Computed example of a mutant assay.
Amino acid sequence: MSSVRKPFKTHYDALGLPPPPESDDVSPVEIKQAYHNSLLLYHPDKAQDLPDGYSSAELLDAVIAAYTVLSVPRTRRVYDQSLLLHTVGSATGSVAAFAAATENAETVDLDDLDHIEICTVHNSLDDYLRGIAAPDAACLADKHCNFIEVWSRSCRCGNIRGYVVTDELLEQLLDAQEEQGGRTDGGELLTQCTGCSSWIKIAFELSG
């Protein structure tokens, strides 16, 4: 996983929106409006007093990446699940209820999941989930392309890519663990199937 600087803690921060569960009722229209507002806010001709010394280009890249994920209900759901689990400590509801729902979750190794790099300029995570995205060799020579790493696994409900993890979600888990004095070299990511109520634990270790 890369160690690129991140100007915002979450995608919601990048768009000036509250994180879940406060953002649960935010509509796609409101997300699109927040996206356009952020584009204007960090435009090179308008931006002033940029946060923490970040360039306008870095901020705009973060805004575009945020909108790519949050504008699609399916990918937003995947993102929200991991964000809630590892910044709050449990999904919405009581810790006891969450523990009961996940206590029998199977543990699998990240290396055993299908892996792909997706160019978010020419494809989207939702395209991949629907089986219509593939690596584009032409993207490798395009300096404007932005790649994300995606791991997936089928679920017993029949969803071929029911469990989905991105490099960004893993990095967010590590950030949350570090803030709590925990591990920074690996961990376990609890992930719910996008098509049913099943959960798995995805164990991973950082290489090097």
Rank of each mutant, 00 (worst) to 15 (best):
D45P: 00
V29Q: 08
A47D: 07
S90R: 10
W151A: 05
R76D: 01
H11N: 15
L59R: 05
T120S: 06
D25E: 13
Q192N: 14
H115C: 06
S23N: 04
S90Q: 08
C196A: 11
G131T: 09
S152V: 11
A99H: 09
A96V: 06
K143C: 12
D45W: 13
L140T: 14
S56N: 07
S82Y: 02
L41Y: 10
L190C: 11
T107I: 14
S94N: 06
D49L: 13
F147A: 05
P21Q: 02
A57C: 04
I200E: 11
F147N: 06
N37A: 14
Q172T: 11
V150L: 14
L83F: 05
G195M: 08
S198K: 10
L113R: 03
L70W: 07
V95Y: 10
D13H: 14
T10R: 07
Y42A: 01
L85D: 10
D13S: 06
S23R: 02
A34V: 08
G93Q: 04
C155M: 07
L113A: 06
L50A: 04
D111C: 09
P135Y: 12
S71D: 03
Y128H: 14
A62K: 10
G53E: 00
Q177P: 08
L40F: 13
L169M: 15
S197V: 05
F8N: 02
L84I: 06
A203P: 04
Q172H: 15
G187F: 10
E106T: 04
A47V: 15
L170D: 00
Y42E: 00
E103D: 05
G208K: 12
Q48D: 11
S152Y: 15
K201H: 11
E58G: 03
S3D: 15
D24C: 05
L39A: 02
P18H: 01
Y163T: 08
G93P: 09
S124H: 07
L59G: 04
T102K: 02
A57F: 12
E171H: 14
L59C: 12
G131V: 10
S3I: 07
T107N: 04
K46M: 11
A141P: 01
P18I: 02
T10I: 04
I116W: 07
A96F: 07
S152W: 15
D24A: 13
D61L: 05
Q192S: 15
D185A: 13
Q177I: 02
S55C: 10
V78Y: 02
W199R: 04
A47E: 10
G208S: 14
L125G: 13
V69I: 15
P135K: 02
D114C: 12
Y67F: 14
L17N: 00
T68Y: 00
P19L: 03
V4Y: 01
I202G: 01
T102A: 07
A96D: 01
V63A: 09
A141Y: 14
I64D: 12
T166F: 03
F8Q: 05
N37L: 11
D49Y: 13
